[in-house]
Amino acid sequence: MAAVAHRPRVKAAGHFRHRQESAFARWLLTGVALAFVAAFLLLPLVIVFVQALEKGVAFYFQAILEPDALAAVRLTLLVAVISVPLNTLFGLAAAWCIAKFEFRGKSLLIALIDLPFSVSPVISGLVFILLFGLQGWFGAWLKAHDVEIIFAVPGIVLATMFVTFPFVARELIPLMEEQGKEEEEVAHSLGANGWQIFRRVTLPNVKWGLLYGVLLCNARAMGEFGAVSVVSGHIRGETNTMPLHVEILYNEYNFAGAFAVASLLALLAVVTLIAKSALEWRDERAAAARLKAPV
């Protein structure tokens, strides 16, 4: 499930209203857009649930509650629980230093943060094999010290973290840059220390953007396939995350089972979407309230 990295910022609604297209053109454009959404987004989503429930509700729950499936759910949750908070921490730190300070190599850092977006997830996975695999740079050392990374949970966590690395930072950097650093400067001159400035001024100012970034990061962390597939080794009940488990079931022609597990992932997508819309709606209302306020 690929997530979109940038939220369309709702500002000055009705800004384009002066460009009145003909009614026909408007209907045509709206129709085409809706048809695309239906064909490429809505239909697959419906099919996932239809297929999942094809053999009845009983089979559906049996497929979900089967031990290997449960293990996959557990592993996916574990990976998300580890990688999302760490990436949130990293994203906050990176956005803070990029938006609030000037230093050499800043643009390099921004480019590096984008790297996971521009590299195919398969390559990301391979990089970890090359580093920590048996034939890799640290492979021999790791084997000698009995540390398992590749084909084990640490490898999956690492690969997931790498792939979901930019989400929070990308969301926060433009927001923080837009807000500038005057509020922090004022707080500093009023006697606040670094932690007080962060907790009382910076964090509250970006909390919605942060939450949004975390949501996207979480969705991707749970849904990541490519990178995880390379490092996991596909050991049933041990190193299979939900997306990998879906693939295995599908390859075994267990379509209903595959779709049952897939429906859980799809459900996650829907929940994320609803949460995101709720956040945007709230944002919009706040913006409207600001507009209404006397200036």
Binding site: G180, E183, E185, V186, H188, S189, V201, P204, N205
Partner: peptide, 21 residues
């Protein structure tokens, strides 16, 4: 001396009020 310890009050052109407070 850091700005924290200078006992200066700043007023900026664009107010820089804490928007969340």
């Amino acid at each position: 001396r850091s700005a924290r310890d200078r006992r200066v009050g700043f007023v900026f052109q664009h107010y820089a009020l804490f928007r969340n407070m």
